[in-house]
Design a binder for these strands. Sequence first.
DNA 1: CGGGAGCTTGAGGAGGATCAAATCATGTGG
DNA 2: CCACATGATTTGATCCTCCTCAAGCTCCCG
Lengths: 240, 240
Amino acid sequence: MQTRGSLTGMKDNDIAAAWNGLATCEKCGIRSLVLFADLTSEDFSFIHLPIEDIWLPAGTSLYQPGQNSSALFTVREGLLKLEQYLPDGAQRIVSLLRPGDVAGLEAIVAPIYEHAAIALQPTKVCRIPKEVVTRLSPKLHHQLMKKWHDAIQRSHECTRELSTGSARQRVARLFVLLAPGSGDLCRLFGREDVGALLGITTQTASRTVAEFKRARLVREVGPNIFHRDLPRLEQIAAEG
Amino acid sequence: MQTRGSLTGMKDNDIAAAWNGLATCEKCGIRSLVLFADLTSEDFSFIHLPIEDIWLPAGTSLYQPGQNSSALFTVREGLLKLEQYLPDGAQRIVSLLRPGDVAGLEAIVAPIYEHAAIALQPTKVCRIPKEVVTRLSPKLHHQLMKKWHDAIQRSHECTRELSTGSARQRVARLFVLLAPGSGDLCRLFGREDVGALLGITTQTASRTVAEFKRARLVREVGPNIFHRDLPRLEQIAAEG
DNA sequence: CGGGAGCTTGAGGAGGATCAAATCATGTGG
DNA sequence: CCACATGATTTGATCCTCCTCAAGCTCCCG
């Protein structure tokens, strides 16, 4: 179990520097995916608080555990990790959030955040103040349920697919899970995070990815950009 | 990765045989913990569908994945496992539900159940028809959010505490998690389930529990009833 | 008494952890 | 522009944990 070096001195979230402008929710391109899917244009007029559009470079944290939960965040592009800490201080990634998912849902029922939410890739999110959700609560009821449901599915997915079986299988399943639908290309992240996600060491993560490259299961076409041989990866994911 | 023998021929749920009578929710002893915490006695008059009180012997399934989701279940006593299946057909326990938790929350947003919910110990649940929840939806809003939140915390707990670290640590953390507040006594379950929960083999589960007994970290005072040395278990859980 | 299921234990080997070092990428200051 | 520091990745060597295969064991039930 390792402790993380790169986290040192990053206890505060650093979203302030990444502000990108106010969002125009009504014209949102992924509106059908998000919390506001059911709202009418009349409803939008009741939102008097700014919905911010935030761009997060990889490694940026959206919030830290224990911090006051002031907002929810809809993931628009990219990939977020939710991590928690073990008794011995080591970290463990307990969930991955992809576009359409919501980070910080616990804001609705808890005064503080329970994870660190950190971008694994360049990521775009919408910051929705807690009060907006409170005010629109009845209207959002159904969408909120769906988002909670998504959150649980992500979490169970992490246990089922990424924390079970051999290191080979876990890495293969990770490659399969990454950005499905975007062809055979996907973007990976640091080996330390791969380890914390799969429950293996950084070295084993690196070794296994390197082995996959040599076996031509994946091909690195750019820095952490991989071309995948999905059929073969899926076979490894399923058996041995 | 092992497949389960004892599941064979148990695809259907067997709650029909376990019916126990209608519940009187207003007088429920754990009312503050459950979904109906916020209801007034007037609200109860709107419930025209029966809330059943069900007793589940250990090993009984409440529902199976793919089955029509007709109800939610509040856990009143005992312990439930939620399990899913891996690509290769092996099973993995993705969450444990304890008293106050709700099984089958996905019924609210999905037409079918996504897990098998099976009693690990003799367990008592309340069966709440989906329509009751739909009808009382606005009233239950806040409690539902809390229940979703609990469900996610359970799931993250399983990843963080029970699927991370050495087998020794995982078993120690399991003993610590089991029925906290009930003194130093707790009830364990079959070694196969311990394995599926911790992501280790049945044999390693058995070996480790046996080793704990020899080291007097736990003492078996009855069939799968253990007396725990919590301080020492917590120490193992935290370090090595 | 015999059979079955679950639990325990043993021996051996494979896979992953650990410790350590080399390589590579990036950025900084001279 | 180069020398150097820093951090991430890769690789190597060794050890230990845990998986695998297999055999007993206990308990319960017909």
